[in-house]
Design a protein around this nucleic acid. Structure first.
Lengths: 253, 253
DNA sequence: CCGTACGCTGTACAACGTACGCCGTACAGA
DNA sequence: TCTGTACGGCGTACGTTGTACAGCGTACGG
């Protein structure tokens, strides 16, 4: 947040970094003590440890401390904090296991994609907060995109989807998956939902008039209880996935 | 990001603020020069001006400058930055026009809800970045929740949805709406998508092998062109909404 | 053997949120 | 009318952030 107005980093440099396109690089001077992959790996570990806001909270100084170098040293590996975050994201995408589902029915294929992304969100809670409107365009994201588009081959054939709709359908599936991940990690309540609600109950009791807000009070209580009782921790997930598949099935006619 | 570890603010205080539950407040001392609503209104304007990251970028100091007071003065109105953001969010929810659709078919009712939220995201680009897992529990959010749950009355009857599923269905609709807003405001490209892509094209051309990523290259190009050509600026939106309605229709059987 | 390119880093600056304590005001009680 | 005090406002200061800049030392190319 603080002072992130840079002179404007060359996008080409960032892309070259993502795709590991080395430039000539004369051999003068001391050898590098770290390599980019090590930096990104440590950054990922740090972000993972930081919970849902781990990537946003990832600081250059903390990473440098972790790596045993001075903060400014990292700037010889990476243009800045933002680009570091891009590298972390793309590396996480690259590391996703991708199940080969060619030949299976489209429902199975889409379910597999959804589950791979669910696993991503479990491994990296910050992933659900990555801005989906700002593509990274790295090798990891590209491979993920290719793999996931392939899972739509059958459906696209059956439903006669053009490329734009194929992209929209994938986006649709991923959106719901990401939203379910956000619900699952339940920022509200943190590690002790009961205490969270208990702290708010007195005021809410005074203020939440069941006559003004009948549905809100009733449904909110039911939804809250269901989520926190862990009877069905992933109810929203399965509901959303089923709805996505049904919604896409309607395209097949 | 910087130094936001507070002594831990009382949640009850925040709720009281949201619901405008005034405490006795002796009449000693000088009268207040501002009122909470004015502060929140200015904060909203500032956040709106800040684009998609306007709420995250909203700073106490900038708001104080805008209001013509010293930064610390704001702390007599609001416990801190976080609570200020909550107030802004809840005020935006409260200000949403809510179309009365009682009696209409469930598809019309759900579409109305989706469009109201779309309007919200257009008026306040930062709204799509608000963490949906951390409910504000203010009067605005509550009224919004009540109104939107009401739109599901017919569907819930027809499909026999219990309260948990009713909440899940609403979440499903809102998720897709929010995701469509994120796409629409297109953080990628900003105000000049052509220049954005042009800056990346050289490296991408070298690196995006159509043999390794056939679908990604083809579909990505199609989707990118469609979005930027403004032929169908809201294609993803209508696709998503149609899929949501179809997916929920499957519940009716 | 020297010049130079390059890895590394100490210092510094602007921005942030906010704790602390002071100052002046204006009402409550006498 | 006078005085004590509660309270709004805010100046200062600290710790945090990202990163620009300039210098230092190293190790290879000529």
């Amino acid at each position: 947040m603080c002072h992130d107005d840079r002179v404007a980093t060359d996008p080409a440099r960032t892309l070259a970094l993502l795709w590991r396109v080395e430039q000539p690089a004369g051999t003068r001077g001391p050898r590098r003590g770290l390599d980019l992959d090590a930096v990104v790996a440590r950054a990922t570990a740090l972000a993972d440890a930081g919970g849902p806001d781990g990537l946003a909270g990832l600081s250059v100084r903390a990473l440098a401390r972790e790596l045993g170098v001075a903060p400014m040293t990292l700037y010889t590996y990476v243009p800045g904090r933002e680009e570091l975050a891009d590298l972390v994201v793309d590396a996480a995408y690259a590391a996703m296991p991708r199940k080969d589902t060619t030949g299976l029915g489209w429902r199975e294929r889409l379910t597999a994609v959804a589950e791979e992304n669910r696993a991503l969100h479990r491994a990296h809670p910050w992933a659900a907060r990555v801005d989906p409107g700002r593509p990274v365009l790295g090798p990891g994201e590209t491979a993920k995109y290719e793999h996931e588009l392939a899972a739509f081959d059958e459906l696209a054939d059956l439903a006669g989807l053009d490329d734009v709709d194929r992209d929209a359908a994938l986006t649709f599936l991923l959106d719901v998956t990401r939203a379910a991940a956000l619900v699952e990690q339940q920022s509200a309540g943190g590690d002790d939902p009961a205490a969270w609600w208990a702290a708010r109950a007195p005021v809410l009791g005074q203020v939440l008039d069941p006559e003004r807000f009948p549905r809100a009070v009733r449904v909110g209580a039911a939804a809250g209880a269901a989520q926190q009782s862990a009877r069905d921790p992933d109810h929203a997930w399965r509901f959303g996935l089923a709805r996505v598949l049904d919604g896409l099935a309607a395209l097949v006619g």
